[in-house]
Design a protein around this nucleic acid. Structure first.
Lengths: 344, 344
DNA sequence: TTGAAAGCGCTAACAG
DNA sequence: CTGTTAGCGCTTTCAA
């Protein structure tokens, strides 16, 4: 089977390699007779085209890279799954690339991966600066995902984090919560993601005439990459120190799971004693008890939009960066009180 | 930057392409002087080798495929992460391939992917039969993962599912549980995985002189691929129908999470009223409340063993199939009573 | 419509 | 130790 070339098929069928090539690629201008003769030879020999040789000849690999912090975060697993499906329909394969949120890994990705290995890159940056991104060689098409601020020159797809944070916080207020804390933003280096979500949280409080109490901001640094997340420990400590809150707006679902655990360990009823919300709507938020109220990005739209932009770049589009905001919704489950519940 | 060839570097440095090639690949027998001259040219030009051309010339891609049901299952995400790290150290990249547990996808993988795209395949089969696997063309090196029975001709890495199931069940018995149910095996088509875990469960019960009551087997079909798992619904129904059990040995962690939710919805205390165990020890089992007692495969060993076997095959080993059993342990958390607890 | 031949960029014999 | 050259298997003009 190995080493079966276009030439072998051509010999067997008594035609030229280019005719066989045309048949293999299903191109027009091949007579039905030829096509049949060649197809027979292909079938009998069990010929399969060598993708690498084709890649070298065409200059395209049919691969795109999808780079993010880590695959064990269910949000990225779901994003990756969705992206693979979208890409597959267009004949692309997706290569997952973990950066571990490290600056070097993100840099390396942009320089090292260009080497004709992929036709384009989808990157959800977490460490690299906007300036460095802007300066990056435009060698290989690049589309950015997520809320990190992106240079105007690059394509970028995100959801409106500020609005979503505002909405989910407003929901809690409408349900009667008055002492709402924000949980899970970074302690040492605030990420752009956390910044935007904090902003929306603050806006919602102010719009309701509620003060923003710094004592209700529970920051901590996430567990090291590859480690089991353990958000329940710092949250537990905050509760033990007497955090004065009737609701927790968590930075993401993983933090929210930790919050649920910390609350339950302390015998707090959710949402009666403490409402909890998350962010991402991954599978686990439906399976948690109580079910987690959370921000749900429209992953299908996000993935197809991002892939679409990248495909256009690959096909030669060279215009200015396009910044697209895709939709989200709030999924209400049992971890937050129903809006109809009224005041305290 | 694009279209910068070995020849360009050679011209600039005033040497031949093969010398440049030798420098790029860091091969011996190049004088320090030459090396320096060439390296300077490489740096000034910003040359990067074209991986695809190298692939065509060497016949190796540096890719291996890792194929499994679905990436959103945290076990596979963690396995994939671990495998990527192991492979990276050996200079390989891992291509994730979702089969969705479909027979066609697994077949396609073995025929379609061989086309010089990857140097080898790691497959955790779920639908394809042992006979079909045995008959598969040995075109591209293949190593099987998981407990599906594998043909003797192929390499295979797994943990001892029967023993692990026996151990975790015996643990529950030692802690005083007497009415232990098994939860989450398939209703319509029992998988080999479930079969082995059921077997170990049964053996432990019999070894303790406890009868095996068919009424304590709670089977149901998993949610369709890509859907939110909802094991809590069928488990809830079983509880409502009066399932007579003081412990649930769950097929895997996802089922266990559903069991926790179903139990908590009904006000059952875990483990006092109902002990629950899982399988996989994914990150979520530490974050659940109560923390989940679960079987923990040694993922690092599993990944490096499987990769090692595959690398040997890629490097030409052509001997008989090797079947390796890697270690596991039981991680005890709060969802099961401590062994010291004694009788009821 | 079909065929011949020149690359795609790199590696690896072999010669010098 | 360095250079020359013939592939790797496919695509793609360009002639026929």
């Amino acid at each position: 089977m190995r080493g079966l070339r276009l030439q072998d098929v051509a010999d067997k069928a008594g035609v030229s390699v280019s005719t066989v090539s045309n048949v293999v690629r299903d191109r027009p201008h091949v007579s039905a007779k030829m096509r049949h003769k060649v197809q027979t030879a292909i079938d009998e020999l069990g010929y399969r085209p060598n993708r690498v040789a084709r890649q070298l000849a065409t200059g395209r690999t049919g691969f795109i890279a999808l780079a993010f912090m880590q695959i064990t975060n269910p949000y990225f697993a779901e994003l990756g799954q969705m992206m693979s499906r979208v890409a597959e329909r267009a004949g692309y394969r997706v290569l997952f690339e973990e950066t571990g949120a490290s600056l070097e890994a993100e840099r390396e990705l942009l320089t090292d991966l260009d080497s004709s290995l992929v036709d384009g890159i989808l990157l959800q940056p977490s460490a690299i600066s906007q300036r460095e991104l802007a300066r990056t060689r435009t060698d290989v098409p690049l589309v950015l995902l997520g809320e990190a601020s992106a240079p105007l020159t690059l394509d970028h797809v995100m959801i409106d984090n500020v609005a979503a944070a505002r909405e989910i916080t407003a929901d809690l207020i409408a349900a009667g919560c008055r002492r709402i804390a924000f949980v899970g933003h970074e302690e040492t280096a605030l990420s752009e993601t956390s910044r935007q979500r904090l902003l929306g949280y603050q806006e919602a409080l102010q719009a309701a005439g509620l003060g923003v109490d710094p004592a209700r901001l529970v920051a901590f640094d996430a567990a090291p990459v590859g480690t089991v997340p353990s958000a329940h420990l710092p949250i537990g400590r905050a509760l033990d120190r007497g955090l004065d809150a009737d609701a927790l707006v968590c930075r993401d679902d993983l933090v929210a799971f930790g919050a649920i655990r910390a609350a339950q360990e302390r015998g707090l009823r959710i949402p009666a004693d403490l409402a909890i919300t998350g962010w991402d709507n991954t599978w686990a938020s439906a399976l948690a008890f109580p079910g987690l109220t959370t921000v749900s990005p429209n992953l299908a739209t996000l993935a197809s939009t991002a892939f679409g932009l990248l495909a256009e770049r690959i096909d030669g589009y060279a215009g200015a960066g396009r910044h697209v905001v895709t939709s989200h919704s709030i999924v209400r489950r049992e971890s937050s009180p129903p809006p109809a519940a009224g005041g305290e």
